[in-house]
Design a protein around this nucleic acid. Structure first.
Lengths: 209, 209
DNA sequence: TATGTGACGAATAACGTATTTGGTCACAAT
DNA sequence: ATTGTGACCAAATACGTTATTCGTCACATA
């Protein structure tokens, strides 16, 4: 099984110097604007330095690498996605409704990001394809949320209880992946929104007690 | 909704001249070897011409373009995949078993292609990402096979009958896509084989009467 | 008609080079 | 200590030029 297995670049925070510092915020602010406007690849670290009026070297006092800055921006993006999903789920009624909201919102929020901030979306795709830590964290939070929904559904009798909870959570997440993972979602656009609805239906049928 | 929507290059056969002709077969044979050895991109039409001892211009009497030759080779590949799946399904017992075989064989056969004929797999990825007609045909045949399994399961009471058959077929196919579609499968390798098994389990639960 | 080709143009890829970029470090100032 | 920088290097990238490659067409031969 000599698979590809690239960098194993699941790097840690990759942040340096004081965690709370106005310059760090300035860098992030500048990066957010520049990345969104020119894209991650076309923005140079010197651009960011010029934008905040400091030298390039100073930026490296706060971030280990350009990618680390990209991860910070990406964290904001996926954090926003997660918040939207969590909020939508919170407004749901029973677990079935919550699960529907979970799937629907994850898709619509990500698609919206794709269309309104295409350049930022590209970072997310890159991050996902390169297994950045921030994506792993996002997936874990999403699965955590999903598990909560499942638990609730199991407790109040909406969902079956025989299948191990972990397996249920994972398999649902895999099945929904084409509509959640940015890399896959790009290739599923022409199937939306029907395919997403129908897979959610399938998932709910699989949960029937 | 200004989606991407590229070439709409879902071209037809793109074949020219006599359909039955020894030279056509020679071209395809040479292409199969060269594409598998050097890859689609690195193989030039002149290479194929030299291989069969004719001029490059003559090749264009039989195929409209290099891509058309690629489609022919790709058709062989996915045809092979489909045959493997159909055979495995044919050896199955009840519909549940057949569905399991359907999913498992589709994945293993595609992964095997990926590892043994990586260069040909690349063509399949390219074909899929560019929506070549041959891929569309493959998907339709696969869905046809899946529908047969579902019908059988519905008739003998293994599967539920409330959900419209079309929807069931489509949603199952979508859910399995990360393990069938070459483009997706490449990114799901690290989840195999567990994820595939677990999603299949989810699908079967959703089919419970 | 069926088989087969060399020559040709536009588009693309390969290639080598000059420039830019990511990242570090020694050093200065507060 | 903390804040801040210019100079520097290896690696990557942009760029302009050359060489291939796709695909066509007029033409040849049997």
């Amino acid at each position: 099984m000599g698979a590809a297995m690239k960098n194993q670049n699941t790097s840690k925070a990759a942040t340096r110097g004081p965690a709370e510092h106005s310059v760090r915020d300035q860098i992030v602010d500048a990066a957010r604007e520049c990345f969104a406007h020119y894209g991650y690849g076309k923005t140079t670290v010197s651009d960011l330095a010029r934008e905040i009026g400091f030298s390039k070297a100073y930026i490296y006092r706060f971030f280990e690498s350009k990618q680390a800055i990209g991860e910070a921006i990406c964290a904001e993006c996926v954090g926003g996605l997660f918040d939207q999903v969590r909020e939508a789920v919170g407004e749901g009624g029973d677990a079935t409704d919550k699960l529907r909201r979970f799937a629907r919102t994850a898709t619509t929020a990500t698609v919206e990001l794709l269309f309104t901030d295409r350049k930022l979306y590209e970072i997310a795709v890159y991050a996902s394809s390169e297994n950045w830590e921030v994506v792993r964290a996002y997936i874990e939070r999403m699965q955590g949320l999903l598990e909560e929904i499942l638990k609730e559904g199991r407790e109040n009798g909406e969902f079956e209880r025989k299948t191990p909870l972990d397996e249920t959570r994972r398999s649902i997440f895999y099945a929904l992946k084409p509509f959640i993972d940015p890399v896959f979602l790009e290739r599923s656009l022409d199937l939306l929104p029907d395919a997403q609805t129908e897979v959610t239906g399938l998932v709910l049928r699989s949960l029937a007690p």
